[in-house]
């Protein structure tokens, strides 16, 4: 039996300990905001925070999560008003939207680490997150907007 927290709620897991967190979130807990994109940590669509650190949930097995605290896009900010979510709205970043939860979770970890990232910092942090619609320039702009503290819209 593995005990962990998902978005602040205590959970118990007694399934296959090798099951990746991604599929536990999506199929068992019904938190489908975290997306499957590649299954081999190449695309970043499944990015979540584990104890505050950005991880690829497709490569994070349940057996490594005992006592850990997991945050998904659904739990990033109670009113979906994280500075990045506000900046994403203001910049109209998303196209299809499928990768954007992973992008935002990755960017949130970046800003925690580097509140005022340079272009190079953004490249380094975000190049593991693929967007096939090609919203990169707006992602970059939105990260900078969030970092500036000027993202206005709720």
């Amino acid at each position: 039996m593995i005990q962990l927290k998902i978005n602040g709620t205590s959970r118990q897991f007694d399934g296959d300990p090798d099951m990746p967190l991604l599929w536990y979130l999506r199929d068992v807990v019904d938190l489908t905001g975290t997306k499957y994109g590649c299954g081999i940590a190449q695309c970043g669509a499944c990015t979540v925070h584990v104890d505050g650190k950005a991880l690829r949930s497709c490569q994070t097995s349940m057996k490594t999560l005992a006592g850990k605290s997991v945050t998904t896009i659904e739990g990033l900010a109670p009113k979906a008003d994280h500075p990045l979510q506000k900046a994403w709205r203001e910049t109209n970043v998303l196209q299809c939207g499928y990768c954007q939860a992973g992008q935002i979770m990755q960017a949130a970890a970046l800003l925690k680490d580097k509140p005022h990232p340079t272009d190079k910092d953004i490249d380094n942090a975000m190049s593991g997150n693929i967007c096939r619609c090609g919203t990169y320039q707006r992602i970059r702009a939105a990260i900078k907007l969030a970092a500036s503290g000027k993202a206005a819209k709720a």
């Binding site: 998904t72 659904e74 979906a80 979510q85 709205r89 109209n92 954007q100 935002i104």
Partner: peptide, 9 residues
């Protein structure tokens, strides 16, 4: 759909 998507919904 922007708001739903940004909330993971």
């Amino acid at each position: 759909d922007q708001d739903d998507i940004l909330k993971g919904k």
